[in-house]
Each structure stands twice: as structure tokens, then as C-alpha cells.
């Protein structure tokens, strides 16, 4: 119980992408996951990939509202990493050894399914934005992701005024939304 109380501020920090919190969680758990992966047929690069994916699952979990985990952060990350790694081994058709747990585990099946769905959505968005090419990609990223204002964008992209930049941005946006909604309707079955 004591542990969980101590961990709440960390989880809150994680939810707002606070670097200190991320760093603390990273530092305290990375080695554990790395030994799990390396002892089970993986490399250090695999360990990095899997651990970071597990961190994203945790990030999504705490952002979904409550900062409550029903277990310690350590247990959670271990469980998710293990599940993700076994899945990865299966996909690669590599031998998945039975893993003996030095840590206790919790069930994370549902969260991983959610995560995979979201991940696929983000990858789709990523691809869609890249497929627009320049200057659309940088323009939309500057406005919608980095939230720069149109004057600044016009200046840094060399448009003579903000209206020209707006026009260009609008055309880009329409292309992106078209791709996005085509995909969205397919996935979600809205006619």
C-alpha cells in the first residue's frame, strides 16, 4: 500500500509527459525488462523497443483518467513487457521459451489490445501525414502538433504573408482529412 501512495505523483507526472517522472520510472525499471528480454532470446535493441512500448501502454493507461494502478509500476511494466515480448517472438516465428517469473504479474491482455488498436491508428496518421509530402507535412505539423501560430509559420516557411500560408495549409488539411476519414469509416463501419 505504501508503495502505491508513493507512486501516484510519478504516475501523474507521466500522464503529462513530465521528463523527470519519465526518467525516474525509466531508470528504476529498465534494467529489469532488459534482463527479461536478453535472457529470453532477445537483444538489447529489442529490450529498448519493448520497454518503450510498455511505457507507452502505461502512459495511455494513466492518461485514461485515474492515476490508480492495481499494482506497482514495476509489476505493471514487467507484465506488459513480458506479454509484448512473447507476442513479438510469436510474430517472428522464433522460439518463445516459457518464462519463469521472478516478478509477480498481472493480467494486461485488454490494455495491450487497446494499445495495439491505438498504435495502428497513430501509425496510420503518421503514414498519412508523410504521404502528403512537403510542404504539407511540415506545415500541418507546425500548426496542429507544435501549435505554432500562423504568422510564425508564414515567416519560417517563407510565405509572403499569413494568408498565403493559410491557403496552403487549408489545401493540405483537406487532403489529410480525406485520407483520415476514408480510413476511419472503414475501420469503424460508419457508412
Amino acid at each position: 500500500m505504501k508503495q502505491e501512495i508513493n507512486e501516484k505523483p510519478l504516475l501523474k507526472g507521466l500522464a503529462i509527459n513530465d521528463k523527470k517522472a519519465v526518467e525516474t520510472i525509466y531508470r528504476e525499471n529498465y534494467n529489469m525488462v532488459q534482463s527479461l528480454i536478453i535472457n529470453n532470446n532477445g537483444s538489447a535493441d529489442d529490450a529498448k523497443d519493448i520497454f518503450q512500448e510498455a511505457m507507452i501502454v502505461l502512459y495511455e493507461k494513466v492518461r485514461s483518467g485515474t492515476f490508480e494502478l492495481n499494482c506497482q509500476i514495476k509489476t505493471y511494466l514487467y507484465s506488459v513487457s513480458k506479454r509484448l515480448w512473447l507476442k513479438r517472438l510469436q510474430q517472428l516465428n522464433r522460439y518463445a521459451p516459457p518464462i519463469e517469473d521472478p516478478e509477480s504479474t498481472v493480467s494486461v491482455e485488454e490494455e495491450i489490445d487497446d494499445h495495439e488498436k491505438r498504435d495502428a491508428e497513430f501509425e496510420m496518421m503518421n503514414k498519412a501525414i508523410s504521404s502528403l509530402g512537403e510542404p504539407c507535412k511540415s506545415l500541418l505539423e507546425a500548426y496542429y502538433l507544435q501549435k505554432q501560430n500562423m504568422q510564425v509559420i508564414a515567416a519560417s516557411f517563407g510565405y509572403t504573408n499569413a494568408d498565403n500560408a493559410k491557403n496552403q495549409k487549408y489545401k493540405c488539411l483537406m487532403r489529410l482529412k480525406k485520407i483520415f476519414f476514408a480510413h476511419y469509416k472503414n475501420e469503424n463501419g460508419h457508412g
Partner: peptide, 19 residues
């Protein structure tokens, strides 16, 4: 969706940095 995508991207780059 764009916002969540942006945050996801930022979080991923934080992870890289931290690593």
C-alpha cells in the same frame, strides 16, 4: 485524433531522449 497523435509522438521522443 491529431492532438492525441501529437502527444503520442512527443512522448515517444521523450522516451528516446531519456534512454
Amino acid at each position: 485524433q491529431m492532438n492525441r497523435f501529437g502527444e503520442w509522438q512527443k512522448f515517444r521522443s521523450t522516451l528516446h531522449e531519456v534512454h
